[in-house]
Nucleic acid binder design. Structure first.
Lengths: 244, 244
DNA sequence: CGTACAATTGAGAATCCTCAAGAGCAGTGG
DNA sequence: CCACTGCTCTTGAGGATTCTCAATTGTACG
């Protein structure tokens, strides 16, 4: 995706309804903006942070997208999730002040840095901010649970369909099209996230394409038949996914 | 497991180092104890809460153990995780004040109820409590990430070995034996959590048993060769699992 | 002792992975 | 403009792991 990288700080940021400022008074948002550091620019394949590194800041995606993963000792890695604009990265580090995964830019992206110590202080001053932090953390947990369900009990085609549906819903929440979008991740990233091989992902996309449910052209995905996609994800009822 | 269900409140609770009071001053713990409701007793198969229910309290395991899961529309369910004494349940509800999974007792168990509204207020008064909440939430997230890795890129025997190792470490943290323990969950629960069938779990346990790495007698597990078990989980180096 | 439930074990089937080759696309240089 | 390289993605065939179905054993409890 190609969201215009605006340099706006929190009060003028079009993502404020999705991000930390949600639910805050206007003056509280201004207060928050004072602790948010200048945006950092990352290119494709730049690391935002590494597993094991000390965590001083949380990061909010301003534009672009990211992939977080845990690298095994033997070179294998497991993708934990993808982050789109408005989402907060680094929450796993709240346990020990060290990142428990690595995060890398999938395209040219910008992030806002939020120093952890100052965020904590501000949470004590602004109850609404503390509430919002709790909501964000709860969302991260619920989203991880969705991923666990995905990996635990889903066939290949269900996984791919669920992946597309999750993205669709998240793009929609950002005000983008929910039916046509440009994947910022490679097939390898998708496969790794879904616990499949790239060949299997490719085959399932081809199958969905053959059924006319989606149209695939490289990384451009067009969803032609949303109900059918939902039926694959949840064969019985019209399911509601927690936006992951 | 059979932890003696002591009626002690937070200041005298032997779990305080693992639970919410960790890192608090003695008088702060007393303050916390005033908002923690009387313990609730649950029998095997009793629901602590249901998916979709409004969340008014978080729950800390006082004794016994729990299983949380997401039930699909079509009767299938995916186990999200297991909870042992000192661990906090219901964190996924912080997003929308509704539980996004169901939780059920695996044996006779007790929980402490912590009203959410009063916990939030107290977090504003006691910075250390807010810190500890953040740590607990960060731990939950890191633990979920471990589960994602487990389900994404592990063979059946690696999953079973990892499961045993995770339990071993958590029991050790509770002061119980890390090599001999009594599973409170059925094979069905383990299989469901690991994304396998009960037959496969049974076969992998038999295989580990045949290799002399563990001894299985119904639900009693004895780990005879911890290094070998670790080697199965991570073939290269001596890995450190985030206690999940 | 008999029933109900949990767990184990076996044989065949299905899904997904591995290995391998080919197609599509972008960038470089003659 | 076209060949060449490098990378990503697709497609095919065979093989391995895990699932499904089925029967048996084991344990708890009335």
């Amino acid at each position: 995706m190609e969201p215009t990288p605006i340099k706006a700080s929190c009060p003028d940021c079009r993502l404020s309804e999705l991000c930390l400022p949600y639910g805050l008074q206007r003056d509280e948002v201004k207060q928050l903006a004072t602790i948010v550091k200048n945006q950092r620019l990352l290119q494709f394949d730049d690391f935002l942070y590494l597993l094991g590194e000390e965590c001083r800041c949380l990061y909010a995606v301003k534009s672009g997208s990211f992939r977080s993963f845990i690298a095994n000792g033997d070179g294998l890695e497991q993708t934990i999730g993808f982050y789109l604009p408005g989402e907060i990265m680094g929450l796993d580090a709240l346990q020990h002040d060290r990142f428990s995964c690595s995060t890398i830019a999938l395209e040219t992206s910008t992030v806002c840095e939020v120093p952890l110590s100052r965020l904590n202080s501000l949470c004590n001053e602004i109850p609404g901010l503390q509430m919002q932090m709790m909501r964000i953390l709860g969302k991260e947990i619920a989203s991880d649970h969705d991923t666990i369900v995905l990996l635990g009990h889903r066939t290949a085609i269900e996984r791919v369909a669920t992946f597309l549906l999750m993205l669709s819903q998240r793009y929609a929440a950002l005000g983008f099209s929910s039916t046509t979008f440009n994947l910022s991740m490679r097939r390898q990233d998708i496969a790794n996230f879904l616990g499949l091989t790239i060949e299997t992902v490719s085959r399932q996309l081809a199958e969905l394409s053959k059924q006319g449910i989606i149209t695939v052209k490289q990384r451009i995905i067009k969803i032609n038949d949303l109900p059918s996609l939902k039926t694959i994800v949840n064969p019985c009822a019209g399911q509601q996914l927690t936006t992951a």
